[in-house]
Computed example of a mutant assay.
Amino acid sequence: MEELKSAINQHLNQIDIFTADLQSGFQPAIDNLYGFFHAIDWKEPWVLCLISFHISLLLLVFISRNNINFQMCFFLITLSGVYLAEKINFILGNNWRSFAGQNYFDPHGVFFSVLWSGPLLIISILILINTLFSLCQLIVKWKRAELKHRARVSRNKQD
């Protein structure tokens, strides 16, 4: 019986800790986010180039939305960019003095994940959603064609 009481008390203590975290709300996360964005010099040329690179990729996704084959290749390229993010972060971390005012490239890759992998993953998700919509439309076309074909076959059998 004593073990049961001990287990219940431990469980209640864990719930108290969890509810205390929830009561603090999202303010600590928002404070960390503000700190992250204020630590970046958004006027550095390489940061502006990176942002314009992601914007151009996004425009390319919207322009090529009807070309599924191109988008599938583009999907693989964007996911390859995410896969190579750790290596790119390491290379840029070793050479940051040649292009940046401060070392943004921490060993854990948080900065690079936010500014490189995050937008690439969003672009990949958009490509995936577009592909799913295209596949749904293709299934509808195929089913309509199948129904028309069945109607023609049944008409020919009746004649």
Rank of each mutant, 00 (worst) to 15 (best):
W142Q: 11
P107R: 05
W46H: 12
V47L: 11
F99Q: 02
D106P: 04
S98W: 11
G93N: 08
Q137E: 13
Q137A: 15
V140Q: 13
A100H: 01
Q27H: 13
H54V: 09
G109S: 07
G93H: 01
L22E: 08
V153I: 02
S6W: 03
S80R: 00
G101H: 10
I68S: 06
L126H: 06
D31N: 15
I30P: 02
N95E: 01
Y104V: 07
R152L: 02
G118H: 08
C73T: 03
L128E: 04
N95T: 15
K87N: 10
V140H: 11
N69Q: 10
F18E: 14
W46C: 09
P119V: 09
N156S: 03
L92G: 05
F70A: 02
I125S: 04
A145R: 13
A39Y: 14
T131E: 03
L33S: 12
W142D: 02
V153D: 00
D41K: 14
E44S: 02
R150Q: 10
P28N: 12
S64F: 03
V82D: 02
N13P: 01
L60S: 06
V82L: 01
F62A: 06
V47M: 14
E2L: 13
W46I: 13
L92I: 04
N156P: 00
H38G: 04
K148N: 11
N94S: 09
Y34F: 07
G93M: 08
L33H: 08
L12Y: 07
H149W: 09
W116P: 05
H108M: 12
E146N: 06
V61F: 13
R152T: 00
F90R: 11
H149L: 12
E3Y: 08
L22H: 07
F75Y: 08
F36D: 11
D16V: 09
L92Y: 07
T131P: 00
I68L: 14
R65N: 07
N66S: 15
G109Q: 09
L92P: 02
K157L: 00
G118R: 07
N89E: 03
Q158Y: 00
G101A: 10
R152F: 00
G35S: 15
I40Q: 00
G81W: 02
L128S: 14
D106F: 10
K141E: 07
L147Q: 06
I77H: 02
D31R: 14
P28A: 08
N94W: 06
Q71N: 14
N32Y: 11
A29S: 10
F18T: 13
L84A: 13
A7E: 12
M1Q: 06
A39N: 13
R155E: 01
D159T: 04
I88R: 03
Y83W: 15
S80T: 11
L92Q: 04
W96F: 12
A100Q: 02
L115D: 06
L115F: 15
N66Y: 13
A20R: 11
A7I: 14
L59V: 15
F18S: 14
E3L: 11
K87D: 12
G101L: 10
